[in-house]
Computed example of a mutant assay.
Amino acid sequence: MKSLALVTAIAAAGHDDDLPPLLDACADAGLHARAVAWDDPTVSWNRFDAVLLRSPWDYTERLPAFLAWCEHVDQTTRLLNPLNVVRWNTDKHYLADLAAVGIPTVPTVFVEPDAEPMDALAGFLRAWDATEFVVKPVVSAGARDTQRYSRDQDFAAGNHIARLLDQERSVMLQPYLPSVDGEGETALLYFDGQFSHAIRKGAQLITPEGTRQTPAAADDITARRASAAQQALAEKILLATTRLRQLEAPLPYARIDLLAGPDGQPCLLELELTEPSLFFDQAPGSAAHFAHILAELLTRDTVRARTGTV
């Protein structure tokens, strides 16, 4: 029986709604799966045939340590998703890479730690005639340190940017797209490169004065039928990622978060390849489907190792 680590964090224990159904589904698929914390020093990672990142949600607060751990695991066993993808995806500068190859993204201006905060913000506001805008760090999860502002809150926004830059954290500035208040975000889930299901997430930044306090409010997540245009864009994003990261096989899992842009067409908000919630509760059977894919993936790798095929 293949052994699989489902990686969480000590701080996230008990908070990952995806873990219980995935553990059960892995058992049904013939996998010996265990939920273990990446920051538990007692774990022997070489005992697992593969290590699947699921909810190491505190990585944003200690990214160098997390990436060092990922590198150690990658040298010891198989890390899913792959190390070069995780390194790239944990910093939202990846949006610039995707935009450069023609992927429509939410317009983003990056502000680096050596910049003057108010000058950067003034330049952004001149370039984008948005009623509201968003300030967020490039390494973040769950709307942490992210804030929505109106244009007349430029002083408060500038102070927010300055605080992040003083911590040597790069910052993203984005126009707030009003479509999110009505339509919400659409998250499309892909397993082994194939579309599985989609969900709708309500707005995470409720007003310019406050944000939700959790990665997603459970009462504002529902199943959604993805449109043909959304699926087409998601598949274009996955193809671009494959080329940018020089991948030889589809990613075991990917979540693509889309918004309706000013022209009504979908655009990329975030590409989640490290620790996304997979929303099994909103798609009955999806945990079993994912576990079956993981079992096939590990079996296929074993056959390749024995035969020497690629």
Rank of each mutant, 00 (worst) to 15 (best):
T222L: 03
P284C: 01
R245Y: 04
I237P: 10
D257M: 07
P215M: 08
A260L: 14
L269F: 06
L244H: 11
R200W: 02
G285D: 11
D281Y: 07
H289W: 05
R225S: 04
L258E: 05
Q204L: 12
L298T: 08
R300D: 07
P276A: 00
D301A: 08
P208E: 00
G210N: 15
R212K: 13
H197P: 15
L298N: 06
T222D: 04
I221F: 07
P252V: 01
D220R: 09
A226P: 12
L297M: 06
L258F: 14
Q213H: 10
A295S: 15
T214P: 13
D281I: 02
A287F: 12
Q265I: 02
D219R: 13
I206E: 02
L247C: 03
R225Q: 14
G264T: 09
A203L: 10
L251S: 01
A226H: 07
H197E: 02
P284I: 03
A287E: 02
K236Y: 03
E248T: 05
L297N: 07
L278Q: 12
L269E: 09
P208C: 04
D257C: 05
A260V: 10
K201L: 14
T302N: 10
D219L: 07
A232D: 13
D263Q: 10
T214Y: 13
T242H: 08
L269S: 09
L239P: 04
A283P: 11
T207N: 12
A287D: 00
T211R: 15
P252T: 00
Q213S: 09
D301C: 04
L247W: 06
A287P: 15
A249P: 06
R224C: 01
Y253G: 00
L273D: 02
P276Y: 00
A291M: 01
E235L: 03
G202T: 08
Q265L: 09
A223Y: 00
L294S: 05
A232S: 13
L233D: 10
G210V: 15
A218D: 15
R212M: 12
A240E: 00
S286K: 13
P215N: 13
A240F: 03
L297F: 12
A216L: 06
L298Q: 05
A223V: 05
D263G: 01
G210K: 15
H289T: 10
L273H: 11
A198I: 15
Q246R: 11
L271N: 12
C267A: 06
R200F: 00
A249N: 09
V303W: 05
A223T: 13
Y253N: 00
L298E: 03
L258R: 13
T211C: 07
Q231P: 07
A226K: 04
G210M: 15
A232C: 10
V303I: 14
H197G: 04
A234C: 08
D281Q: 11
E296Y: 04
L258S: 05
P208T: 01
T241W: 04
L298Y: 11
L238D: 00
F280G: 02
T214N: 15
A232H: 13
T302L: 05
Q265H: 12
G264L: 12
L244V: 04
I206A: 06
A226R: 11
T214A: 03
A232R: 15
E248N: 11
H289D: 08
H197A: 00
E275Y: 05
L271M: 02
